[in-house]
Design a protein around this nucleic acid. Sequence first.
DNA 1: ACCCTCCTAGATCGATCGCTCTAGTACCAG
DNA 2: CTGGTACTAGAGCGATCGATCTAGGAGGGT
Lengths: 197, 197
Amino acid sequence: MTDTRERIVAASAELLRRQGYAATGVKQIVTAAQAPFGSIYHFFPGGKEQLGAEAIRESGKLYELLIPAVFDPAPDLVSAVRAFFAGAAEHLRETDYADACPIATVALEVSSTSEPMREACADVFDSWIDAGLPRFIAVGLDEDIAREVVIALIAALEGAFVLARATRSTEALEVAGELMAAVTERALDARSTPATR
Amino acid sequence: MTDTRERIVAASAELLRRQGYAATGVKQIVTAAQAPFGSIYHFFPGGKEQLGAEAIRESGKLYELLIPAVFDPAPDLVSAVRAFFAGAAEHLRETDYADACPIATVALEVSSTSEPMREACADVFDSWIDAGLPRFIAVGLDEDIAREVVIALIAALEGAFVLARATRSTEALEVAGELMAAVTERALDARSTPATR
DNA sequence: ACCCTCCTAGATCGATCGCTCTAGTACCAG
DNA sequence: CTGGTACTAGAGCGATCGATCTAGGAGGGT
């Protein structure tokens, strides 16, 4: 049964997201996952680092699903952007400011100490960019402009999460959401108008 | 001599910034500070938590000095914003992506586990907002608009740091810098024009 | 019946964690 | 010289860290 393995990864992902890598103990993970201790090193011979990297990638994959989930039903790109930030703010409030970005904490923590973990985080960010990009290209934005907007979106979201979690307020998320909606709108207005020429 | 105390705080600040709270040991701090172990609990009877909170506040104060250092010599607000992000990117490259925001790592890490530490981080963010605000009000922006711009600036910077550190690239900082310069410019254009009325 | 592989189960390892404790040193006030 | 305060110095506390180890149960193939 690989059910245990999945529970371990899921529990790790949740603990990493809330308290980071160093503060999360292997024993704590097996307790949360209701898994036997020995299973950790059976499934993850690379130890905590391998398990952590896999949990990060899994978290990244799950979070990436939010993109279609929010963008598909939205009437247009601008309101999708707005909805994304609003949804993040609501979820943050609901979880008492515990669940923000699933990987940002770890990303900041380990990027000077563990290359495998840092790479896992970098891969997740890249995959988010790749996942968001087509939606902005599809509405007529140049590829490089679209990339800038997507990167700015993710950066604004991550930064707002940092402020929101620390101050226990969603103000930063609301401000960043409105701002990025405006930025998106402006980028759409500017497309296909070779104006100054 | 309180010189030892200062060295302890400075060493703590650097270690916290690079690897976070949980990964930083008290023994590691005294070694880095070249301080006797006993001094830690002499100066900081509250232990690691008290020391951590003080290091965060100190880091916040030092980083706040960058605001006048960058904004004062700049010819205008927009180029000041640009310079701030460019300077951050350069410093990040110079330190091999080690020194980004001095408190973001800790802020994400502890905000669900230690109230005193979380408060210290929140206070620092608030003080940064307060420190930046007057500069945007001085050029004629409404107070609430100015506040939104400043919060967005900090959020964009923090988020870009997360991406930059993980991907070992300053692309996010450059994108966010250009975007926030444009946002600032647009806010300035919109001021004092009761346009639609 | 048999073995073999997969996985569980947890005792146990040395190292390190944050912290407490005692002893000793430096310097000032009387 | 004496007493007191401020700080240094580090041995050592129990607890926990990540990781290794052996032993055994479950289930399929032969």
